[in-house]
Design a protein around this nucleic acid. Structure first.
Lengths: 237, 237
DNA sequence: TCAAAAGTGTTGACTGTACACCCATGT
DNA sequence: ACATGGGTGTACAGTCAACACTTTTGA
């Protein structure tokens, strides 16, 4: 630090916005904060970046400590750093958003950890600027998902066509014509049909599909052009 | 700081990737760094976040100090924070990208400041991880511009149709059919035709247009669907 | 008069959109 | 047998994509 010794240092934190999907609606994972200040109030999962780790590593560590989750899709979202966003001192926070299949972890989370899923449309009061963080992440999720097929990260490995359309309906808050959407989806070659049906959600049963990983890896969702004439308001809400 | 006093603090910097367009090709603004370490080597404009300012304010201040520019389109790009990205101590850097009409500032910049425009395809060796920062910003610029009409920020207030298509050709590194592109552009109602021609670049002269700010404000570039079947590789280069 | 860039129109292919019915099954 | 959700087909409309020539004017 010989050169920079006169520069002001500060605390750098990470907060994770964890989106989940249970087959019906979009959810968000929150915890009762485990340390002061604001202990026991609902909050995003957060923590401080340690000297030995990058922000990405910190986000993965924090997520793992607080929920047991690992190997989850996660990406940098935004930086929140207004001087007074925390009253107790200068803390700048980098947010990350994660996408997971919330059904897979429902039990583990509430048993071992103080974490709980809430509907994205109705969650408790949060500390600091965490609501703003969630809104920013939601906006980014929509933009990103308009170009890349990342929403599949919210589904189980085997999923059905009705599940995908519900997912898109939940994320963009729109109504989708399933006939057209399914056609578009299938013509993308992203999906491989299995000889197996999900009988949980209907009597007839819906065929399972899995992702064609080869194509998925770096595919742009041109098929998403199907979504009806967006306006910027739609994406920015 | 009563609660967080045991947490590790660090230095938070801001680096600005300033994209410019001169009517022909995409450029980037670099300076000879004015302080140690790495003094006098080419670098992005950077500096440390001060206690009284948000990251956004720091970015604007640094840009203004080093170039005289103000009121420029700027947005957060990404965070770079691997523990050893700078050898002289732990510094995490938030990058911003800015878009400006480079012709407007050509003289001022090289006279009063140590700043210089370079082609985005050919610039000098940079310090630290600044090349990676530029590549990330380029990728984000492409994604963002595929959904929002932000590239107009790179043009002067009055611009011509040939200028817009050159701009899109430069940003996406593609060849555009001007007949189709112009038609699409005009049908978006984003442009207002002036009764005045730019005679600098051709003998016949090209009509000037200005943006229809009302529509521009929150318009999605659905017209950009014109761009030929992108693949993720195209956007990610 | 020639060179250089601006501007303009048409057609066929494709993709998007709107719309309604039958299917398979568990109860 | 009926209620529930899954799946399929067609026709019209709109957008995209490919294509070449004329216009203007300064040198």
């Amino acid at each position: 630090m010989e050169y920079y010794k006169d520069e002001p240092s500060l605390l750098l934190a990470v907060d994770c916005i964890i989106f989940g999907f249970d087959g019906e609606s979009l959810q968000i994972l929150l915890i009762k904060r485990g340390f002061e200040p604001e202990i026991n109030n609902w909050s995003l999962m957060g923590g401080f970046i340690q000297p030995s780790e990058s922000p990405d590593e910190a986000a993965a560590r924090i997520l793992n400590n607080l929920t047991g989750l690992a190997n989850v899709y996660m990406e940098q979202s935004a930086v929140f750093g207004k001087p007074n966003r925390e009253k107790h001192g200068r803390v700048v926070s980098i947010t990350y958003f994660a996408l997971i299949d919330s059904k897979k972890y429902q039990q583990i989370l509430s048993d071992k950890y103080q974490a709980n899923w809430f509907p994205i449309t109705d969650y408790p009061k949060l500390i600091f600027d965490h609501v703003e963080m969630i809104n920013t992440a939601k906006r980014q999720l929509r933009s990103k998902a308009a170009l890349y097929p990342i929403l599949f990260e919210l589904l189980p490995e085997k999923f059905t066509l009705p599940q995908i359309s519900s997912l898109y309906e939940a994320v963009y808050d729109i109504v989708i014509d399933k006939r057209n959407f399914n056609r578009k989806l299938l013509s993308s070659n992203l999906l491989i049909k299995l000889n197996e049906k999900d009988k949980e959600n209907s009597k007839k049963g819906a065929f399972y599909y899995i992702l064609n990983k080869e194509i998925y890896k770096d595919q742009i969702m041109s098929f998403l052009r199907y979504l009806p004439s967006w306006s910027a308001q739609d994406l920015d809400k």
